[in-house]
Design a binder for these strands. Structure first.
Lengths: 132, 132
DNA sequence: CATTTATATGCCTATATAGGAATATGTCAA
DNA sequence: TTGACATATTCCTATATAGGCATATAAATG
């Protein structure tokens, strides 16, 4: 199967950084497509396409006026993201608070939780036999 | 171009609902791969693959012990998501608080911001001429 | 009417999945 | 050693983009 479509929900829609930028630009004020084009330095068709995705998941709403389309944010649709991630806040809070006091007892652990991504370690791997 | 890879950052990694489930299951406690397999009812290879993505973006960390791999959450990596979405909280807060009092003045606006996604409206469209 | 401006959509392509099935790697036990 | 268990990786395929480019639709303007 393929990846979950971008229009599935807010989680998928905001995975794209351009769309997050658009959303941020719409915070608090309506914007026309061309305003976004200028602010973001992205082609007009691309902006329209990103807006379409955001429209389909309900993150933005359009108001038409003459030949302009005024887009505004429907922040409600971002709430599920907030609600999902918020419970984890206590973990990094806790870590910040307790990191010093627990330093000794965890000193034996090799990897630093705050350090960058890691690739798969040790295990070697050999290509499996060709199909058949 | 294709979509931003799932391993680009936490935003892309958590777009997949299975991975969000895995993350939630790891909140507060280490789990082995098989424990996750049982809890989630997903095949072992799939769980391993999802864990790999989460490892690569640093959202989870492995500890090896014998033939087991104990995965735990590195919540830090979710902080960018939280930080990005948190500023929007005030918008739905505000909406909840002010929705009644502003009802009259905004009554003329057609669409309900809390309603579901919408498809593109009015405009008709015709397939463009074949290339050439 | 024709032209300009604003926006949406279509086609094309390279790329990356998610999941299923098979199998490799690594560890422990008898 | 052999076998069982735990986990990772490979191959395969259908599907969906994101972006470039061209063009359609629609409204305003002369």
């Amino acid at each position: 199967m393929a990846r979950t479509p971008t229009t599935t929900d807010a989680f998928n829609a905001i995975a794209e950084s351009r769309r997050r930028e658009i959303i941020s630009h719409l915070a608090g004020q309506e914007r026309s497509v061309n305003e976004l084009v200028r602010s973001l330095g992205v082609s007009q068709p691309q902006v329209s396409k990103h807006l379409r995705v955001l429209r389909e998941v309900g993150v933005v709403i359009v108001r038409e006026s003459g030949r302009h389309r005024w887009y505004r944010l429907n922040a409600q649709r971002l709430k599920p993201v907030f609600d999902w991630v918020k419970p984890f806040e206590r973990f990094w809070d806790h870590q910040l608070a307790g990191i010093k006091s627990r330093a000794e007892s965890t000193a034996s652990q090799a990897s630093d939780p705050t350090s960058g991504p890691r690739r798969a370690p040790k295990r070697k791997s050999v290509p499996p036999k060709k199909k058949g």
